[in-house]
Nucleic acid binder design. Structure first.
Lengths: 348, 348
DNA sequence: TTGTAGGCGTTATCAG
DNA sequence: CTGATAACGCCTACAA
């Protein structure tokens, strides 16, 4: 019983034994507590190294009342993104890893119970909520229970809540202003699905708001608008729009997938970008660069947002956040090659 | 001390107390053990419901020696994918969730210790390895230690290992045959980065192998080939290829991002697809449909593969897998609009 | 500076 | 069919 014949991973007891000291001292060393003789510390660290010991996360959690794990709810159904913007969780996972937290990705749609059980089962210390609706039962529930979470997105009432979001309303306005400066007056919005609007999905609601406001402000006479599902939907929507409003000179798409559907439709309709028609989208740099022509776009820094959200949450869990942090990213316009001055108000 | 004044989640003790029985019995009920009076079971279930009790996952894990968590190593750096194929983890996360397992996404690059610690810390029962090289130290290490894992991809020696992979070699061959049937004889492969080849990244190695074999088999005289990074790299590579080999009539791209870079280049060079040149890619249905024109492609069912991998792993962890499962998906050609018969062997 | 003892919430073994 | 009781691996007062 002196050899490391054990098939199991070494435990703190093994370390203590090997060092000829008590478990508590090892524990102190593990947790960087003061009051440990430097000599002992070094020796123990050495032994830990040799043994390849790592504390059992479950036991640590049990004893300390934490799990060092954050979760991200990513409901795959009922999704209005084209999934081109999947970097949210890459960002979050990376930030978590760097803070030495585990990252749980949860794609199953949550019921109220399932959501609460995440906390009750103590598998998770806090979650990042995505796909936030203006009124969101998940938010209400967690707020009421006092469970820690942060949102990517925000609600109507965010009192006491932490979130990070992109300012979709001013994003669209900024997009419109860019087009208006280029002389466009007949601009359409290829927006979110009717379902998204019905359930009050934040970006859907706010981008439409921005669109309307811009039309009003600049006296655009024909605020065309068409909401539909992404990509395939955007494809059809675009064709219909072109048909119904031949005078269109610019389109604004609300995400990458939508933009690509729009591009496909335009190409098929023989419209050249940006000569015949300008296209502007809200999407990531990556997607914007991926297509032909590279898209003028409002940047949607998904990875950064995921990262930021995770950092906010972890800070909160560590008690390093005295008050809620609410971050609204300002829209950033990136001019590429898909927008240009009006040429042919009509081209048929 | 009779009221549920406690701020904490109810524990199994609370349930037992409320039911006036012992903890053990509650535990049995929780784990669906036999030997419990139906009446008691119902009553306790009822109480559990009322109390909103959920067992503590950490404690369960500690006592049972499991964590009900699987991990997926997704090294964000050193990545040769364009990240368009991110659905691997959506699939895995979903499968895990359905099997009532937690899903941990790990993006930090692993060192040997970090990898072992995942197991030693008992935060994870097994992992899904991605981005497998033909010779892969992670695989060797885990195999040697006897830690459970499955691969998305496979190595040179897979004895005793479980994996799921797409047959990249025959995929490329199938792609080439499709083009050859259409009359193409001058076909180039837009492949993986030199780095990917150097480190023996499976898909890189095998797709090149397939390409060479096809050229040999069909006596293609000019097996053009250009390896480079995805997208931006593919863009440049394509332009260079067109320049160096004006006779090219078809291109095969190894992934979605690469394909899009290639498309951009072709468009810029004024080549029409598929009239002037055919393009075929290995990518997901989604990406293939996203671009213009929709791509003829070898389907890369990433989400399914992630799902499958998770299921294999969980089965293994549950002891339901007697022997290793090795799944090699046959390549499936999906003909869309980016390939067609040769027209202009040269068009300048 | 270090050790002892109790507890975190479950599961599992063994009597009853 | 049910109930003590001992782990599981670690943390944290409290003592020494």
């Amino acid at each position: 019983m002196e050899q490391d014949v054990s098939d199991h991973s070494p435990t703190i007891a093994d370390v203590a034994r090997a060092a000829g000291i008590s478990i508590s001292t090892v524990s102190r060393i593990l947790n960087n507590k003061p009051d440990v003789a430097e000599a002992t510390r070094q020796r123990v660290l050495q032994i830990i190294e040799e043994l390849g010991y790592t504390p059992d996360a479950r036991a640590q959690g049990l004893a300390a009342g934490k799990s060092r794990t954050i979760g991200m709810l990513y409901p795959i159904e009922n999704l209005d993104l084209t999934n081109l913007e999947l970097e949210f969780f890459v960002g979050a996972a990376t930030a978590a890893g760097e803070a030495d937290y585990f990252f749980n990705l949860i794609t199953r749609p949550v019921t109220q119970n399932r959501l609460l059980n995440l906390y009750r089962s103590a598998q998770i210390d806090g979650v990042i909520l995505m796909q936030i609706n203006v009124q969101d039962w998940r938010v209400d529930l967690l707020r009421e229970r006092g469970y820690p979470f942060v949102m990517i997105g925000h609600c109507a009432d965010n009192t006491g809540l932490s979130y990070i979001d992109l300012d979709f309303e001013s994003a669209i306005i900024k997009a419109m202003e860019h087009l208006i400066e280029l002389g466009h007056r007949e601009i359409a919005l290829i927006g979110h699905s009717p379902a998204a609007h019905e359930q009050g999905f934040g970006p859907a609601v706010r981008s439409l708001l921005g669109f309307r406001r811009a039309c009003e402000t600049y006296g655009l006479r024909v605020p065309y608008r068409k909401v539909n599902l992404s990509n395939q939907g955007a494809y059809r929507a675009t064709l219909e729009l072109l048909d119904a409003h031949p005078g269109l000179t610019a389109l604004v798409a609300v995400d990458g997938g939508t933009a690509m559907g729009t591009l496909r439709a335009l190409q098929q309709a023989g419209r050249r970008i940006p000569d015949d028609i300008s296209v502007l989208a809200m999407t990531t740099e990556k997607v914007a660069q991926l297509v032909t022509p590279p898209l003028t776009h409002i940047d949607f820094p998904t990875e950064t947002m995921g990262q930021w959200a995770a950092e906010m949450l972890i800070k909160m869990l560590r008690g390093e956040a005295s008050e809620p942090e609410q971050v609204m990213l300002e829209a950033r316009l990136v001019i590429r090659e898909s927008t240009g001055p009006v040429r042919h108000p009509r081209r048929t």
